[in-house]
Nucleic acid binder design. Structure first.
Lengths: 219, 219, 219, 219
DNA sequence: TATGAATGAGATTTCATTCAT
DNA sequence: AATGAATGAAATCTCATTCAT
């Protein structure tokens, strides 16, 4: 199915930026970069399908059509692969937050919100699993979840700087967090199939709710 | 039962109803019931802290101050313990959904919503981990997630039957799901400490958003 | 073959003192202690036969007739098993050093040295591999070899405190180290079969060399 | 050639003679010989630092600033590299043994011994690791350790042919082995830093001990 | 009813060696 | 002659589950 805003299907588009060095820090040639990218893509998919803990390195290398040995040539551990994906996602989310539109009422305000939600949804389709895993900080004893004060906290803080909530006495921080809660989870339900409406309808509804319910802009 | 503003922390209050039979179906005496309850409580905490897969039976028995042997006297597997917790939660959630108030505008409508949210929040504090684990269906190949069509789906379906969304052309199913998304995730952020506002403020804000943004009732 | 000084064959006598707690620090019952002892004995033998790095946990558990799982119940890693053995050996060596006899000339002085060498030889037969591994600090990146400034250094320092070397201008530290070098390596050649003389002859020769050559006591 | 008291550290001076043919027997040009020499030097260092088993081919090629592929162009295996180093050392040791001086008392006898020990020490500084590894026959199932009956055995047998031990009833074989034990291990302690005396003092002491203690020549 | 001990299948990780350019 | 990449067998380690008392 085509995505809500983008003609090309990004559901399995490559993730992971141009950074490319092995676990030992060696720089890569073209072939090595391709293999690394295959592993990143496979990791993204497998984490999405099974969650961080249930995902086995074996699943990743099978999906990437390579070997265990090769995996550890590029990533020093399963967690290292996750970290690579997470950093890339965090970067995308920061950029997205920076583009959150000024909230205004009326048709055009609503269209801006709607467009932004479409971008969020695309990102979530590609990287929701990483976002969720990081959020839940299921990795307990690792240093994850402490990076940057939490992916979602960071994201909502950036949005808070750009919104004016419904009631004048509501803390923008709180409003932003509620907004993120609403949007993230609804996208989640949709991506996982719990919510069977088509994506556009869902995003339209979300846009209304954000405009009216969270930010209180008159229609 | 503790309320959303109760000063004592009920987050790990006992869970699991009066049902008490071992893995082999044997009926229990007082001591056995206490042991089983300790295991249920410990399981609830450990699943909350680490997630289903990362939770080890060893963690549970250590927290319950008992042994592996004893664990398997009461539960046939790790999954069985989870199921016991899940069933108890599912029952509570069904009851809660049945009490979802009719949406009306004005002060009294808002107060009804606010009270219901307080109950949800209490439940979530105690059993959020189970809800999340079940929702994410982290348990891959087991028959979980198929039970009753998903905990959240079921819950929102029951709520859908009781609401009339903001815009007349919005599907009540969709609106209910959005509502659940909003409420569940905001509570989650609060329980895990990502959202530092006090509980009452958060629940007040949620009540407003539900009344205005999701259900579109005028103030 | 009977040992040089002791009627019972200590070549595979149990090693590891009465300390007995699992890797997680739990205290042990009789059965557990027996298993742990089997693992210590097996470890001692396997390290002796193959050296630290070539020794596989698999060899150890096979020799101890137990399973991998059990191994890790008692020791957190291969290195941990080695550490347990090493501590026990270090203790024995300290005791032995404390008994190093005052060097005097004549028959009785020689007999004292000879008796002490017999004890060293027995210890070396049982634990030479651990001594050598620790000495070579083959374990590079671990904190081993740094414990107590080196097993052999410590040992010879204790002996230095008790000897008066041949030439008056020779540093006792140096003389003691030379003594240890001589004794340790000769025992090594004998234990490994490079030196085919019988043990008593070898120890007699060593006694003479120590009395005359290192400590310079007149015959 | 550097002497035992040379201020520059020759510990890792090039090893490996002029023989130069690849693993496949191909003859080499100048560049190839240089590469092979780099690998031999690196191998010598790495085996010294970590021991045979802990040494990784990766360590060797990194130190030699070349690649895995290149390594296997020159040596058919890790063991093959070791063998190349070992053969070179064995040759040097045979030559050294042949030069062992006739043991006589007095100053000039002592000076001869002292000079010989200086040569041994130099050799040991460069190649001690290979000597030790070969001695300990860490290479388990390979045909190593059987070559020529053991490096040290061979060496001491050659020396035995040239000495007359202290007591007339002592086997020259035994005396030679004791001598080698004494000298090898003392040099080892010095090279590894366990023995902090300066090299000349140590070698003087060794000379005395050999003359008096092992060979029993009067002063 | 309780528990300490044991198990083994399966997961992660390492590394000598081979391949393709 | 050189090299970056790939491989897979074998090693270490984990943990749900069963056993024996």
């Amino acid at each position: 199915m085509a995505t809500a805003t983008d003609p090309v299907d990004p559901a399995h588009a490559p993730v992971g930026g141009p950074s490319s060095a092995t676990a030992q820090g060696r720089e890569l040639r073209a072939r090595g970069r391709r293999t690394m990218q295959r592993l990143l893509d496979a990791g993204s998919t497998v984490f999405a399908e099974r969650g961080y803990h249930a995902a086995r390195v074996d699943d990743v290398v099978k999906k990437a059509k390579t070997s265990h040995g090769t995996f550890y040539l590029y990533f020093s551990s399963k967690e290292d692969l996750f970290r690579a994906l997470a950093i890339s996602v965090a970067t995308e989310m920061a950029a997205l937050a920076a583009d959150f539109p000024p909230i205004v009422g009326g048709r055009s305000g609503r269209a801006d919100i709607r467009a932004w939600l479409g971008r969020f949804y695309d990102l979530y389709r590609r990287s929701g699993a990483v976002i969720r895993t990081w959020t839940e900080a299921e990795m307990s004893d690792s240093e994850f979840g402490r990076i940057g004060g939490g992916l979602v906290t960071e994201f909502s803080a950036r949005i808070a700087a750009r919104i004016r909530p419904a009631a004048p006495d509501v803390d923008p921080q709180l409003a932003a967090m509620v907004l993120v809660a609403l949007v993230e989870r609804t996208c989640y339900y949709h991506v996982t199939g719990s919510l069977r409406t088509d994506a556009d309808t869902m995003l339209d509804t979300l846009a209304t709710t954000v405009q009216l319910g969270v930010c209180g802009a008159p229609d």
